[in-house]
Nucleic acid binder design. Sequence first.
RNA 1: CGGUGAUUAGCGCAGCUUGGUAGCGCACUUGGUUUGGGUCCAAGGGGUCGCAAGUUCGAAUCUUGCAUCACCGACCA
Length: 569
Amino acid sequence: MRTSQYLLSTLKETPANAEVISHQLMLRAGLVRNLASGLYTWLPTGLRVLKKVEQIVREEIQRAGGNEILMPMVQPADLWQESGRLEDYGPELLRINDRHKRPFVLGPTHEEVITKLVANELSSYKQLPLNVFQIQTKFRDEIRPRFGVMRGREFLMKDAYSFHLEDECLEKTYQIMFDAYCRIFERLELNFRPVLADTGSIGGEKSHEFHVLADSGEDDIAFSDASDFAANIEKAEALAPTGERAAPTQELTKVATPNVKSMDDLVQCLSVDLKTTVKTLLVVGATTEDAAETVVALVLRGDHQLNEIKAEHLPQIASPLTFASEEQILAAANCNAGSIGPVGLNIEVIVDRSAAHLSDFVCGANEDDAHLTGVNWQRDCNDISVHDIRNVVAGDPSPCGQGNIEIKRGIEVGHIFQLGRKYAEAMNCAVLNEGGKNQTLTMGCYGIGVSRIVAAAIEQNHDKYGIKWPKAIAPFQVAIVPMNMAKSARVKETAEALYESLNQAGIEVLFDDRKERPGVMFADHELMGTPLLLIIGERNLDAQQVELKNRITGEKSLIAIDEVMSLFN
RNA sequence: CGGUGAUUAGCGCAGCUUGGUAGCGCACUUGGUUUGGGUCCAAGGGGUCGCAAGUUCGAAUCUUGCAUCACCGACCA
């Protein structure tokens, strides 16, 4: 490709509304352009990268036994009615009507469509297991699209689905896909980790996320510093403190704490360690039939954070987790949010394991501007249940039993689930088993965010000059950069000849035939991240040499023109 | 959806407080100059100042409403 024929749209200045580095560089290097919130056009350079990621994903999923298909992006709402997700999925699901006013949705995922298809196509256990996938545009009407293509509303995703008669078989395919995912991210040369994950709205039993480690990531990942253990913080278990709880030594005392609204205020006011206090949060309880909305108290040590996922998994608590309103708080605790405590509270009290291990602690008195000190479980507050409801923090013992927790940020680029029979049951997806009886299938589902990977790769591979593509996904393998070609016939001749040979050899080469100054060309190629530059100038032509510059290492060397082609063998 | 902020040329911004009919840098076009790291000189083109209403002799500027975009929270590949 010659730059004179190429849509090379680089920007010198950073667009104002791009926050993270990958978004800035994708705009500056001319990979994408914004159309509307969360919607992006892929320009030639970006599309080249996207296609390469897509191809690597395709090859590895095929190697793992996947059959590629392509399902419509527009799906009848009826199907979603059938699975129950028309209501469950919420406003992220974009609903549309056709000209006959028939309801459709824009597919955010394809469990319904594929399950329906398989239900129709398969009739015997002999056809199992089956693994099918597609690489398709998805639409999710995200509440807040951000960070460019990292969280767009429209995005490219590889989604695979496997079907099995028995759970053991699903388990096997799950492992095969797990391995395929590892190979994919290895080929992409990304620094990634598989982590234990919550199954979220898709539902199911076992689940791993694949995260690319980067500070700009939106998820916190908990690692053990002594083993392979890694889990999304949503999922990472906070172990109960070891040893017996210390016996009470203090009297229960009410102290005045005027204007104390937050934990910080409390620590200031009473000069106590945050770790010897507890905070009490009121949330809406699970609604029972014909009963009014109830309120449940959650008690955490002052320095800990509530893990909303863990909390909403408890049967006593409404899902999604909802905090109690001011009126509900007043009604349940007789005070405002800053002074709630578990002592004498007339509602269900759920205490975190760490908070439950405290003795002689400080808490709200259920009376404005007052707290209790010297509080002790059992003696002062008895009717409680203890659960793990907090986020792990760095330094906690790892739940795997080895080492301590470290926390890093990650970008979720893949997610695999063992779905079980949820969709197969809803969509009536069954085959005849060996005994000639109808048997509902069990399913796995496996996603990869193809467009998100492009952004994630940049987050991990850039410097102050621009993108440093991993070789496997660079838009071009090499760029020819001639110095002052307009004035030097020799330079032009050499550049044209090299371009011709590289093209002949099927190497993706970008020939910078613009009439630009060298600095402009260097800057553009560095921004775009082409791994190799062939710099052709009068300076080295007498010796029949050209200069080779490696974008990744920054190394420069001279190479005989005759040797150039051998670089690509 | 809640909180915050923005919207003036393709991009980045100034002008708004104190109303008088729009400017800077980059990019673009033409001519010259320069040619191994974003040259320099000169001349040019390009703007319904997000939209609508109001106040006023007069609105980018003041008022009100709306829209869009972004940031912080809940969602997720």
